[in-house]
């Protein structure tokens, strides 16, 4: 039947990032001093508008052990809900001091990762709906064959979360809670704790985006 199918190019297949993913994506964590400008987990360095928050957590495997070699990236809108991307179609100017993207590795000993960022604004959903504030997050690691996509929502946005089209598209209501970060204050700093469970009873919802 092959000859009868319309053929287009196939996406290059994914492979695991492996245990040494830091060499290429976070060379400083691997002890390599090669680039003048290094990517990192500080999204507030240029002083963008918005409320400062710290997003932190751990990633756990199927028996509850934290992954100490995981790489985490986030992508989010600015405080007004505009993405600093040419592909944002909202006809509004994004905060020029906000890049919207960051990358970090879990600590080699504790498995804890964090980002310093701002709380994003609401962004439009499909068909003129509104999405609750959220941060897009992806993890790569040894043993993970294709990067796992998820979203981080905020526990103090319960009204917006209740109307969020993506959360509401998860038919198993108890699973929606796995995407909601817990708020705490530590020395005046606002922390959102977001633990990711790759497998098992508390398994985080992962998305095919």
């Amino acid at each position: 039947m092959k000859g009868w199918n319309f053929e287009e190019l196939h996406e290059t297949p994914s492979q695991t990032g492996g245990p040494y993913v830091h060499i290429g994506l976070l060379p400083k964590q691997a002890g390599i001093d090669v680039f003048e400008n290094n990517f990192n987990n500080d999204l507030v360095k240029n002083n963008p508008q918005g409320q400062r928050i710290r997003l932190e957590g751990q990633v756990f495997d199927g028996i509850g052990v934290p992954l100490r070699d995981v790489l985490v990236e986030i992508w989010q809108a600015d405080a007004n809900g505009i993405y600093p991307s040419q592909a944002d179609f909202q006809d509004k100017v994004a905060d020029v001091n906000f890049h919207g993207w960051g990358r970090t590795g879990a600590d080699f000993k504790t498995g804890i990762w964090h980002f310093d960022t701002i709380k994003p604004g609401t962004v439009p959903g499909r068909k003129a709906s509104t999405q609750a504030p959220h941060i897009n997050l992806i993890i790569f690691a040894r043993g993970i064959n294709t990067g796992l996509n998820t979203r981080v929502y905020f526990e103090d946005e319960s009204k917006a979360n209740a109307n969020d089209p993506v959360l509401n598209s998860i038919e198993w209501e108890p699973r929606r809670q796995t995407l909601i970060a817990k708020r705490e204050e530590r020395d005046g700093e606002v922390i959102y704790r977001f633990d990711i469970y790759i497998q098992g009873d508390k398994e985080t919802v992962f998305l095919d985006i």
Binding site: D61, L148, V166, S169, I198, Q199, D208, I209
Partner: peptide
């Protein structure tokens, strides 16, 4: 031990 047991949830892109 590093693969989800549940199926991925497909969403309409935004």
């Amino acid at each position: 031990l590093r693969s989800p047991k549940n199926a991925l949830i497909a969403i309409g892109e935004t």
